[in-house]
């Protein structure tokens, strides 16, 4: 009902060039930047403050027990999922529900693969080695940041699943509205990928 009463729910505002949802998602992402920004700052703060040697020294290379190969693989998976996400939106723009849906499904599958690798091969591996968040500040920040990131991925998958399934009803009522929502989801998705692109080097490589 709101689409009828409220202006610019579907059509862009003539001055800002944005429909409400897109504007909203940009603002939301700004707050997410601050959220992850605070965590990245924490990382820098703690790393700078860490002593050169001793039990609380910052681990590097081997000591981190992180495999850059798995991390790299996950990076590729996420980049690919960003591509499929764009493709989905393009297909909806071109009025092709079936193909768009296919791409959405592909995105969700890639995302699930990402989370699976993260949990099964990375977290489990650490737990087997007896490494927990409480082991050191490095692992504390590793688990917190990647955990929060994984939650963002899972949240994204839920939303995408919704648009593949029940949410697709909207397509038949208002194609533009539906496509807009996919666009917003896509923006969010790219942001989550971007976060990973920063996380990967600071945790796995540096």
């Amino acid at each position: 009902m709101s689409a009828e009463v409220l202006p610019y729910t579907v059509k862009p505002h003539p001055v800002t060039g944005l429909y409400n949802g897109k504007f909203g998602i940009w603002l939301f992402l700004a707050s997410e930047v601050m959220l992850f920004g605070a965590l990245f700052s924490t990382y820098i703060f703690l790393r700078i403050g860490a002593p050169e040697t001793g039990p609380t020294a910052w681990p590097t290379g081997e000591q981190t027990h992180l495999s850059w190969k798995l991390g790299g693989l996950n990076t590729l998976i996420l980049i690919l999922s960003s591509v499929t996400m764009v493709m989905a939106w393009v297909q909806f723009k071109m009025d092709n529900l079936a193909k768009g849906r296919m791409y959405l499904i592909a995105t969700a599958v890639l995302a699930i693969a990402f989370v699976a690798i993260k949990l099964k091969f990375e977290y489990m591996h650490k737990f087997h080695l007896g490494i927990k968040p409480s082991t050191s500040v490095f692992f504390a920040i590793y688990f917190t940041m990647t955990g929060l990131h994984a939650l963002h991925i899972i949240g994204g998958v839920v939303v995408i699943a919704y648009f593949i399934g029940p949410g697709a009803k909207l397509w038949h009522e208002n194609r533009e509205y539906y496509t807009n929502r996919i666009e917003c989801t896509g923006l969010y998705w790219h942001f989550v990928d971007l976060v990973w692109i920063f996380l990967f080097p600071i945790l796995y490589l540096l």
């Binding site: 603002l27 700004a30 707050s31 601050m34 992850f36 605070a38 965590l39 924490t42 917190t144």
Partner: peptide, 14 residues
């Protein structure tokens, strides 16, 4: 609110 609260959220999580 939009820009100041998230760091507290991060701090809360930590």
């Amino acid at each position: 609110l939009l820009l100041a609260f998230p760091p507290l959220e991060a701090a809360g999580v930590l």
